[in-house]
Computed example of a mutant assay.
Amino acid sequence: MTALEAVAVHLPPVARPIEELGEELGLSDRQVKLFRRFHGLDQVRLDPDGDLTDLLEGAATALTALRGREHRVRYVLHARSMPIAAPYPHNPLHELLGRLGLEHARAFTVTHHACAGSLLAIDVAGRLLAAEPDPEALALILAGEKTFTRDARLVPETALFGEGAAACLVRAEGERDRVLSYAVDLRGEFDGRLAEDPDLLARYQRDYPDAVVGVMRAALDEAGETWDSIRLLLPHNVNQVSWKRICRTVGLPLDRVVLENVPAVGHSFTADVFLNHHTATTRGLLHPGDRYLVAAAGLGATFAAMVLQH
């Protein structure tokens, strides 16, 4: 059963208040107030001096469980939201392999699920490792991206992106953080640029809560769990108000949802799941045997959820 061996995060040193970002993005005062007062955003972590390779390296070097086990890594996956991350022929992922001593590993990008891509990467890594003859084989998942365009900085009326990064070691079998289920709902009718299509944005915002709840319920059902049996919900960090509404709908108390990274970090693409996992474990919110639910949505649109056992 696929298991998360270890998770590490890297938060860039610069914290920009959303008012500064709003001015750069041409947002009105009303739009900025909406983000702060209604959505619960405060600041966004950014690394103005580093590139994508530096960002991912920060997360990988923080992963102490990787040290001395580099030879066990068979696969390196970059879970990426944006289809393009760097101009050709620059390849940040393969440059990183050289810095980490992982040139022997097979490396590739997992995309097309946008910000839900980290859950897809866990599933793909588990499937690949299950076919490996060596039970000690590992996969390294990297998550995090640069906010290098306007589309990579803003989801209209919803979220502001940050540059938090994460690294996760995965193995085919393990005793902790075992994957019990994985559910995905692909909704191609929402493909398009929300910033330029008000009707598409309105339809996406209307259907978003039901789609998120639906895929979470599917993951719970597959794992044989209920809202009462899970210890925590680890959401993606788009904003606080949408998760508060969803929790009211399903009857899940807010003290069982990790939301503290929303105002402090910003929506960090596919890294959100791992950032919140790191927060939950370092704060002692999960105990051995606890079941927990993770959920994410990616523009395009993909809704995904996964149940794990700590």
Rank of each mutant, 00 (worst) to 15 (best):
D221F: 01
L233H: 05
H287P: 00
F35A: 14
R291W: 11
I84N: 09
G144P: 10
A86I: 02
D210C: 06
G26K: 05
R37M: 09
L55T: 07
M216H: 00
L21C: 09
E222Q: 15
L200S: 13
L180N: 08
R203D: 14
I246V: 15
R106E: 12
E163N: 09
V250Y: 01
M306S: 13
A62D: 08
A202P: 07
T281K: 11
W243Q: 12
L97Y: 07
L52K: 06
D54I: 06
A62T: 04
H71F: 07
V76I: 06
R72I: 02
L55W: 13
E19S: 14
E157R: 14
L220F: 10
A305L: 03
L138I: 08
S242Y: 00
L160I: 14
P13R: 14
L285S: 02
L55M: 12
Q240F: 01
L100Y: 00
V76D: 03
D151I: 05
G164R: 03
T226E: 13
L63C: 02
A130L: 11
V9M: 03
H267E: 09
L4C: 15
S242R: 05
M306Y: 01
Q43M: 04
R153E: 09
G192E: 10
P235G: 10
L140K: 00
A159H: 06
L129A: 00
E23H: 10
P13F: 11
I18G: 03
L259W: 06
V7C: 13
G26V: 11
C168Q: 02
A114E: 03
N239H: 08
R45N: 08
T53S: 14
G300S: 03
V307Y: 12
T270N: 08
D54S: 08
K33A: 15
L129E: 05
L97E: 05
L286P: 08
A85I: 12
M82G: 01
G22A: 14
E189P: 00
L100R: 00
E136T: 10
